[in-house]
Design a binder for these strands. Structure first.
Length: 209
DNA sequence: GTTCTAGAAC
DNA sequence: GTTCTAGAAC
């Protein structure tokens, strides 16, 4: 039919269309964990208090994140009323990690874990790292990555809980922690130090048994 | 947090 | 010449 021609819906690209009016607006990168919390497809475990996912950019063979379901931005927001929650997150982290390690037949450092928090996190939702101690992963790329997991920038979950019970809050020396990220690259299992990340990563292979 | 890449380091 | 790191990202 000739009358149906030339629909008036032809789209013209213009500045107004670039205004982000659609509802599928992407979150800022720092909200990635809040998004993950609501994404059932990435859940390894969830209960009334917390959720466990795999880190999207794992820095070791097994690298999990345990997050509270309640929105707590970071350790600065945590007080002694949160002690039971943090204890629960640690218990859950251990259980899930050991279950995965058994399932994957992990041995040696691949089955040894540390549980803790970064002193200065980048993502805006409290998250406890569960990380196997092999540190063999393509996503481990920078000095900051390395030092954030192998220096005292990594706050052991049990120390955080003790600190909370003793002092009712977590205090972080930000300047001191930032400096730790610039430390020389030292192996976490022996005294050797390395000039570059590739040399360190090559060395990490020698600790596999 | 990651990606990208300029230029430092070798 | 290549490898590697460090800082911007509007």
């Amino acid at each position: 039919m000739a009358s149906s021609m030339s629909p008036t819906t032809t789209k013209r690209k213009g500045p107004l269309e670039n205004n982000n009016q659609n509802k599928s607006k992407k979150s800022h990168w720092s909200a990635a964990l809040s998004d993950a919390l609501d994404d059932e497809s990435v859940r390894l475990y969830r209960d009334d208090l917390c959720t466990v996912i795999r880190d999207k950019f794992p820095k070791a063979k097994i690298h999990l994140l345990v997050m509270p379901n309640e929105h707590i931005t970071d350790l600065k927001c945590v007080n002694d009323t949160h002690v039971p929650l943090l204890k629960h997150m640690l218990k859950v982290g251990k259980e899930v990690a050991e279950k995965i390690a058994a399932k994957e037949n992990a041995t040696g450092s691949f089955a040894q874990f540390r549980y803790g928090y970064h002193a200065i996190p980048s993502l805006a939702l409290l998250h406890m790292h569960v990380i196997s101690q092999d540190f063999i992963s393509p996503s481990l790329k920078t000095k900051k990555h390395w030092n954030s997991f192998t220096t005292s920038y990594f706050l052991d979950a049990s120390d955080v809980i003790d600190d909370l019970q003793a002092n009712h809050a977590i205090r972080v020396d930000v300047a001191r922690m930032r400096k730790l990220l610039d430390n020389e690259l030292q192996c976490h299992e022996c005294p050797h130090t390395f000039p570059t990340i590739p040399k360190l990563k090559q060395h990490l292979m020698t600790h596999i048994y």
